[in-house]
Simulated assay, not measured.
Amino acid sequence: MFGCSRPPSPSLLFFFLFTKSVYGYHGFSTADRYHYMEVLSPTDIAYVYKMRSAEDFGVTFSNTYRELNLVLGQPYNGCKALTNKCMVEGAIVLLEKGECTFVTKSTNAENAGAIAVIIADDNYENSEEYIIMIRDFSNRIVNIPALFLRGKDGWKISAYLDPFKPAIVNIPINITRIPLERMHFPPWTVW
């Protein structure tokens, strides 16, 4: 009968709970997992970069940010409290994968006042693959967006960032609304 509900079958309920606990399913489609950032300056890295959201921690962007600072975290691995909090506060912080969990890095970025954290692959040759960032076994909650950036993109960006002079970015951007003549992807990246 239409409109009547019956309890879910035990096997369906088990599948959902298993999927949620193991894979962190939280209702996002695959398309929602990718975000784009436009670097406006410095001009040597002024391209549009594709990033992947964390699988099961962090939040989505609630705003589109224009002309926001992108800064390198100190230490760059983000495994300890960030020492450049004055630069990180109110900015996007770039950290590098490795040595501790993604949640630890994201928590340290959030504690320093970052609006979001971008974690670049530590494999500088990676210009194609995205790592799926998953939570650790702690109970820490991350309340900022956490994004993964391919290694070659992260390496190029970090090479041009001065510890005291940030890059200027727009994030997240809708690439379908950018005129083709303004859409510049990094020449080293496979799209």
Rank of each mutant, 00 (worst) to 15 (best):
M1T: 14
I132N: 15
K20E: 01
S106R: 05
I168T: 13
M87F: 10
E129R: 04
S11K: 14
I178M: 08
C79E: 03
Y76V: 05
G78C: 05
I168V: 07
M51N: 03
F61M: 02
M51H: 02
P75K: 09
G90V: 09
G154E: 00
F57K: 03
P145Y: 01
Y76T: 12
M1D: 13
D122H: 03
A109L: 02
T104R: 01
V59N: 10
N174K: 07
P179S: 11
S62D: 06
D44H: 11
N84V: 01
N126V: 06
L180N: 14
N69A: 13
S21L: 14
L149I: 00
I134M: 15
T101I: 12
I178W: 03
L95N: 01
I119K: 00
K50G: 02
D56C: 08
N63M: 14
H26Y: 15
D122T: 04
F14G: 11
E128I: 13
H35W: 13
D56P: 11
T43R: 14
I119V: 02
N63F: 15
Y34G: 04
N174A: 10
Y23T: 13
G58K: 00
V93C: 05
S158P: 11
R140W: 15
P166D: 07
T189R: 04
F185E: 04
I134V: 10
S29C: 14
T107Q: 11
T189M: 15
Y47C: 09
T19N: 12
R135E: 14
A146T: 10
K80R: 15
Y47I: 08
E99V: 01
A54S: 01
E55H: 11
A46M: 09
G113L: 11
T189Y: 13
G3V: 05
N69M: 12
K20T: 08
L82Q: 08
L12A: 14
C100R: 07
L12H: 14
D121Y: 00
P8S: 06
I92R: 03
D32P: 09
P163V: 03
L12I: 14
E128Y: 06
A54F: 03
M37E: 02
D121A: 02
L94F: 07
V169L: 03
G113R: 02
L149C: 03
V39E: 03
Y130S: 07
P163D: 08
P7Y: 13
N111A: 09
V169K: 03
N77C: 00
I157Q: 07
T189D: 15
I119Y: 00
D122E: 06
